[in-house]
Design a protein around this nucleic acid. Sequence first.
DNA 1: AAAACATTTCGTAATATTGCGAAATATTTT
DNA 2: AAAATATTTCGCAATATTACGAAATGTTTT
Lengths: 97, 97
Amino acid sequence: MTKPQYTDKQIALARYSKALSHPARVAIMEILSQQSCCYSGDITNDLPIARSTLSQHLSELKEAGLIQGEFNPPKIKYCIHKEGWEEAKRMMGEFFE
Amino acid sequence: MTKPQYTDKQIALARYSKALSHPARVAIMEILSQQSCCYSGDITNDLPIARSTLSQHLSELKEAGLIQGEFNPPKIKYCIHKEGWEEAKRMMGEFFE
DNA sequence: AAAACATTTCGTAATATTGCGAAATATTTT
DNA sequence: AAAATATTTCGCAATATTACGAAATGTTTT
């Protein structure tokens, strides 16, 4: 009687959930989904965290595939990464039925 | 220019997300949502973790309001906590539009 | 009352997360 | 080339998460 491993789906959903498991990251995604794109500097003003901390949250969201950043010198423009966002939405929808 | 705090909604969504941020907890919710209720002992066989670790995950889900456990001696029957589950579903749905 | 069963709590260890300010990097403007 | 601007990386500290086995708790059966 062997122990089954987690499925890829379960791992993927947990990963997306983890990306959204901090209020700052939820807030960032709300901002981006409202106006589609945004500069990191603008986001700072909307969140109660330091720039360096924001940067960490942004890279976590990027790592999770939920956002993408394009260099628009001298700023970086962050946008929703449509594929990842849609996949997360779909998986979350299926999960909750 | 003061820094705004997170909204209650953002905090609540992050909380539900955090509850689902581990594959074991995703798996547990899938099991429960399929068959509505389950005994802790049965779940053990479906997951690659020790009983004591499962117990911790169950209490996190309970803490988050996603499941409830009723004592059905000598076992504990875990079920989905409908209110919390529905709220999570609704909030997640709104979040993704 | 003892044995068996189901589950949790405890103690502990390893690793991850969150946060900040200072320093580093990179680009544009002066 | 220096100054200004935007952002990240580094170093660090505090706390949280995940995991396990052993021991504890509580119930039922023998």
